[in-house]
Write a protein that binds this DNA or RNA. Sequence first.
RNA 1: GCCCGGGUGGCGGAAUGGCAGACGCUGAGGACUUAAAAUCCUCCGGGGAUUUUUCCUCAUGUGGGUUCGACUCCCACCCCGGGCACCA
Length: 847
Amino acid sequence: MAEQNTTGAGAGAVSGYDPQKIEAKWQKRWAEARVFETEADPSKPKYYVLEMLPYPSGTMHMGHMRNYAIGDVVARVKRMRGFNVLHPMGWDAFGLPAENAAIKNKTHPRTWTNNNIAQFQRVLRRFGFSYDWRREISTCEPEYYRWNQWFFLRMLERGLAYRKKSLVNWCPKCCTVLANEQVVNGGFCWRHEDTRVESREIEQWFLKTTAYSDQLLDDLKELEGGWPERVILMQQNWIGKSQGAKVRFAVADPASAGPIEIFTTRIDTIYGATALILAPKHPFVDKLLEGSPARAEAEAKLKKMRQTSVKTEDLATLEKEGFFTGRFALNPFNGEKIPIWVGNFVLMEYGTGAIMAVPAHDQRDLEFCRKYGLPVRVVIQPENTEPLDGATLSAPHEEHTGKLVNSGRYNDLAPDAAIRKMTADAEQKGFGKGETIFRLRDWGISRQRYWGTPIPVMYCPKDGMVPVPDKGLPVVLPPNPKLTGEGESPLASTPEFVNTTCPKCGGPARRETDTMDTFVDSSWYFYRYCDPQNDKAPFDSAKVAYWFPIDQYIGGITHAILHLLYSRFWCKVMRDIGLVKHDEPIARLFTQGMVQKGGVAMSKSRGNVVGAEEMAQKYGADTGRLYTLFAAPPEKDLEWSEEGIEGSWRFLNRVYRLIERHSNSVRGAKSESADAAATSAKEKALLRKVHQTLRRVTSDFESRWHFNSAIALIMELSNEIYAQEPLEDGVRPEVQKEVLELLTLMLAPMTPHLAEELWEMLGHTDGLWNASWPAFNEELAREDEVEIVVQVSGRVRGRVKVAAGAGEEEVLKLALADPGVSHHADGRRIVRKIFVPDKLLNLVVAG
RNA sequence: GCCCGGGUGGCGGAAUGGCAGACGCUGAGGACUUAAAAUCCUCCGGGGAUUUUUCCUCAUGUGGGUUCGACUCCCACCCCGGGCACCA
C-alpha cells in the first residue's frame, strides 16, 4: 500500500498534538530550570532510584527503553511526593565487544565506545528521562577506573586480593579467562552461548569473595521483602552452604600416602561406607598407584578419565566410571579396611576431592557400587516399614529418619543425634572435625585483554611483586595498543606500558599486563554517582551516608547472581575499610521483564529489535513510554505489537483533544481543588469518577507498581468524561478544571511532556514539575447509591440498587422483591444469610 | 533430579475470597466523507431457550478439597518458562 501523505506520527494526526514539538519544548524548559539536578540535603527525605547502567553497544531498543521508563515513573512520582530524588545515569564502558569491534573496524575501542555512548545519550535525552546528567559517569575514564585500582590496592593490603596459579575457565572466543559466574548452561561462555569453556592453568588474580561467604548468605535475610524471593534463593544456591564434617582415613599401605581426608554431611552413615572414592585429579592418586598391583590397568583408565574430565561434558548424564587403586583405607570409627577407588563423579573442586561411598544411603554411591559389585550395607533403618536389605536395595534411604543399626555404640540413635555425637567423638579423638563448606569460589578478575582497568602492580626482579603506590594512580591504559584478539594480553606487547621503575629499589620492573573483569566497574559505580567529581577519594562518605542504601534498583533478572553478588561483596569490603556504614547497598530490587518480538528477547544478533529512536520519531517519546508501561505489568515479559502502540498513540491524541476543546472555558476559572461541591448530577458523577480513579492510581503507583492497570483506569476516566460531553451543559468551568487537572497530573509520571503541555493549556504558568501529587477526596469519591449483588445459594440471581450503607433488612426486602431472586428463593426456607455491606447478599436456601 | 515462576476470550491482559474477561488490540457493522485516512457510535468467550425485552447453562491447564461463595486458599497431577545440577 502506498504511503499516505500524513502529518505527525503514526497513521496520521488530526488534533494539534505534535509530540516532536512539545517534547523538545519541555525538555528545554526542564534543563533551563535544572529540575532534575539534586544535592544531598539532610533536611529532606531522600529517595535513590536507579536503573542498571547500560553497556553502550549497538542501538538502543525498546527493551532498554522499558527499563528506563519504569524507573522514570518511580522517580517522578517520588519527586511529586516531596522526596529529594537521586536518579543518575552512566555507562558501563569497558568490555570485550568494544575491543572486538575495534579490531574488526580497525579503530580504537575508545572511539567505538564513545560513539555508542553519544548515541545512547541522545536517545535517553530524547525520551525525557529525569536524570541528573551532571552526575553522568563512564567507567572507561581514568577518573573513574583509578578508583578500581585504589580499591584493588586496599584489598591487596588486607589479603583480599591474591595471585594464584589455578585451573580457570577459558573462553576461546573471548581469548580470556571467565569467572565461575560467567560460565553458564553447564559449561558455556555467558557471551558466546555456543562456545564451550575450556580449562586452563594460568596464574591470575583473585578477589577473596569466600572471605564473606557467611555474611553474603546471612545478610540475605535483610533483603527479604525488598528483593524478589527467587533472586534471594538463587544467591543462596550459588553460595551453597553445606554443614558436615571432615574425616581422615588412614591408608593401610603404603604409609607414604595419606591420610585421606573426606568431606561428608552424613557422618552418621560412616559405618555403611564400603569404599573411599577419590577425584581423578586428587594429588594422592599417583602415589597410591605406585607399586600397586592394579597399577597397569588403573593408569590407562586414569589417563582417559583425566582427559575427558577436562570438559564439563554433560556431567549429570555422564555414566559413572571408576577403578580400584589396589589400596585400602581404614575407617577410623571401627578400623574396617575398605578399598580405595577413583571415580569420575567426584570433583576435585568441591569439598576435599574425596568421598566415602555409602551406597545404602546415597543415590550416586548406590549406582557406583552396584556397577562395580561393591557391598551395600544398611546402617539406618526407617521405622514402620519392612527392614531394608542391602543385598536387594534398589533405592537408597537418604532421609534423616529412622534409627542407626550396624553402627557399634551408635546403634539406636536418630540420624541427627548421631551426627552431633559422632562429630564430637571424631573431634575428640583427633581424626575429624565439624566443618562448613561453601560452593562459592573466589572471584577471578584477571582478563587477558586491553579494554579494561589495568591491575596496579608490577614485578621487580629484586623485590618481586610490588603494588603501585597510591600516588602512582591511575595506571593509565596506553593510548595506542596493538590489538589482534589473539595470544596474550595486548598490554604485554606494548613496551612503553610494560617497562617501568620499581618504587622500592628504583631498578627496572615490568607491569602486570592483565586487566580487571568489567564486573569490578559495576560493583560500586552507584556510590560514585553520589560524588562523581571527587579526585581525592572514590566518594565522600558523608554524601554516601545520606543517599544510601539505594531505595529502588531496577534491572534484568540476568544479573541475579553476577552483578548483584559482586556488588554485595564490594559493599562489605568498603564497610570493613570504613568507607560506608551499611551492610547492604540495595534495599529494594525490582527485576523487570524483557521486551520480546516473535517470542524471543530483542537482540541485534536475532535481528528483531525495534529501535527506540525510530519509535520516538514516529509516535513521540510519551507514546513509546506509555505503551511499554501499558502492554504488560512491569515484571512480565512484553511482546512488542505495532498495533498496540497505535492504540496508545490514539489515546494520547484523545486526551489532547479533550483538553484542547475545554482549555478556553477552563483557563480563566478558579482552581477549585478538591472541595468543589457538586451542584448537578453530572458534576457529581465526574468528580466521583475522578477521585475514585485517583485513589486507585495512587495505590497502583505507590504500592503495587501496576502501571498497566493504572493506565487502564485513566483511560476509563477519559471515556467517562467523553460520555459526559458536552461538559458546558451543566458542569461549571471550575469543576471541569478540577477534573481535567487531575487527569493531567495522573498522566504526568508516564507521559511527562504531554502532561506539561496540557497543564499549560489549562492555564498554569508555572511548570507542572512544581506540582505535588494530588490527594484524593474521600467525600467526593463516595458512591451514594450502590448496586448489591444478590446470590441464592452462591449463584448470582439478581441485583438491587440501594443507598450506600443500607442495612441488611432493607436489602433483603428489596432482594426478595426481585423477580430473578424470588424465582429461585420463593417457597424455600432461607437457612443462612451472608451480607457484605454495599457489595453482596447471599441467601442460602434449603434443599 | 532439586528449587523458583507461570497456565484466564482471536491477542496483550484485568479481577488483593464476593457480578470472570476491566482497559487496550484485532475483527464485524454503522455514522461522517466524492473517496480514503482520521474521528465518533454499536457489537464481539462457548452452548442452548426465547418474537422482542430477556433467561438458563458451561467456562480461568486437569482432578479433588476447604468455603455460603474459589481465577484467588489447600492437596495431587499435566504442560510451559527460568535457575542450579554427580556439591558428597
